[in-house]
Design a binder for these strands. Structure first.
Length: 457
RNA sequence: CGGGGUGUAGCUCAGCCUGGUAGAGCACCGGCUUUGGGAGCCGGGGGUCGGAGGUUCGAAUCCUCUCGCCCCGACCA
């Protein structure tokens, strides 16, 4: 698609001819990849390893990453958090103030600039955001606030593995809350708790919040969010309620502390534990309520009080003129990790099965006989109509054998395949195949377009 | 960071033990035939054998050093 095909000011819909795309798929499994998501991401031409734990994102993979990022962004915004962007490179001095420069150890990538100033590639941003907030606020009227960014981080893992699931360079959403007191901090925490449930549900995932070690602060305000995936790293035991929750029609009002608190209470009062903490003898759930699953951690939220605000002098004046160190919490989602985690949760032997919300394209249009005038014309017509209808489509117009196109399309996992071949066309039909179920329907092109135009089920 | 493995064409790998100047399948290019689940035949292009040093008349192969990558463990969004 050329930009000049579009009048100025008109929204461009992503439609792509495979013959114009950069999608280097592999028939065989690369030897370096061990787990299924890593193998499939390499085979589907989504990523390319540049160094241990460091990846380039190719066009298809980058589209998915951006989809995920956008869902995370929208749910953060909905909760009232404000998006900012902090740099990847930070000065060492900032971390000396909090005492973490020495504590962080070899995981922190330390570098020097041309003036021999010590810098680092940020593994996280508590210090920087605290400084940013401190410099911009003075009064208790300036809280509460939540600020987040979606930025690349670097942790020099001893042993990166599992592809983007545990890279050294990774894309993360980290949000930070600033409140006047514990009660306020708890409300911010609750908002994020709910935002996380919504975020993962929107991506078609089952997420289970599990109480996590909260470190030196103590208390119960630390949860890890694990999404359910057969090949997950952790064994989990949890109440059915987590898997039965349905957010489709649920409206959330983040200003309604009672409603938000109610949702949090509903889930935090349910049982969930990893195999390390699960004791069958003490499990409060009846067998029919207990589900066993495997999970992958994709988010972590926690409250840490004044751990950074005190050493960094992040204080506001209270109503009576007193100086109050702000109460903080931080809330992370591993955005690049989610790309792999979603594949772990949604694939079969043939390849990836994208949930529609994060799919790089909604439809794969397969021309079974490129070069055949009727097939070419029918496909060109359908391609144009899909684009006009605002339905994102990848059109495989290459001169490949049918089997190759089918296998490739299954591999990259677009939710729908629209198959056009001479046999069907002779009967005035095309075939619509749902990737997830494998269900196929023969119908007219018009009916197929109408079906695809409907919102996701 | 401990333990193990590996590095030969874009991908998967053989060749190494026993030194003689590099191969297969897939992918790619051209031609013909095919065409509804990774096609067939013919022809073709492509490799500093990770790098450096050494032994030797001769090194992908033997020796030394070095770098990269992978796996198990400890650690982790």
């Amino acid at each position: 698609m050329r930009a000049s095909e579009w009048p100025l000011g008109e929204t461009q819909v992503s439609a792509m001819r495979r013959s114009q795309y950069f999608l280097p798929t592999l028939k065989e499994n690369p030897a370096e990849a061990q787990i299924v998501s890593h193998r499939l991401m390499l085979r589907a031409g989504m990523i390319r390893q540049e160094s241990a734990g460091i990846y380039s994102w190719l066009p298809l993979g980058f589209r998915v990453l951006q989809r995920i990022e956008q869902i995370v962004r929208e749910e953060q915004d909905a909760s009232g958090a404000l998006e900012v962007l902090m740099p990847t490179i930070q000065p060492a001095d900032l971390w000396r103030k909090s005492g973490r420069y020495d504590d962080y150890g070899a995981e922190m990538l330390r570098i020097k600039d041309r003036h021999e100033r010590e810098m680092l590639y940020g593994p996280t941003n508590e210090e920087m955001i605290t400084e940013m907030f401190r410099a911009g606020v003075k009064s208790y009227r300036d809280v509460p606030r939540m600020m987040y960014h979606i930025q690349w981080k670097f942790r020099d893992e001893v042993r990166p593995r599992f592809g983007v699931m545990r890279g050294r360079e990774f894309l993360m959403k980290d949000n930070y809350s600033f409140d006047l007191d514990y009660e306020g901090a708890k409300q911010s925490y609750n908002k994020m708790f709910v935002a996380y449930l919504r975020t993962f549900a929107r991506m078609g995932l089952k997420a289970i919040p599990m109480q996590a070690d909260s470190g030196p602060i103590g208390g119960d305000m630390s949860h890890e969010f694990l999404i359910v995936a057969e090949t997950g790293e952790s064994q989990i035991f949890a109440d059915r309620d987590f898997l039965d929750m349905d957010w489709k029609d649920q409206k959330v009002d983040y200003q309604d502390a009672e409603q938000i608190g109610g949702i949090v209470k509903h889930f935090t009062s349910r049982y969930a534990a990893t195999d390390e903490k699960h004791d069958p003898a003490k499990c409060p759930l009846s067998p029919d309520r207990l589900v066993e699953a495997r999970g992958i951690e994709v988010g972590h939220i926690f409250y840490f009080g004044t751990k950074y605000s005190k050493p960094l002098g992040c204080v506001v004046s209270g109503a009576n003129g007193e100086q109050i160190a702000v109460e903080m919490g931080s809330y992370g989602i591993g955005v690049s990790r989610l790309t792999g985690a979603i594949i772990e949760a949604s694939h079969d032997d043939a390849g990836i099965i994208w949930p529609e919300a994060v799919a790089p394209f909604k439809v794969g249009l397969i021309n079974l006989r490129s070069g055949d005038a009727k097939c070419d014309a029918a496909c060109a017509d359908i391609y144009g109509k899909l684009r006009q209808a605002g339905i994102e489509v990848l059109y495989d117009d290459r001169e490949e054998t049918a089997g190759g196109k089918f296998a490739d399309m299954d591999l990259i996992g677009l939710p729908w395949q629209l198959i056009v071949g001479p046999r069907g066309l002779a009967a005035g039909k095309v075939e619509l195949k749902e990737r997830r179920t494998g269900k196929r329907d023969e119908l007219s092109a018009e009916d197929a377009l109408a079906r695809l135009g409907r919102p996701a089920a």
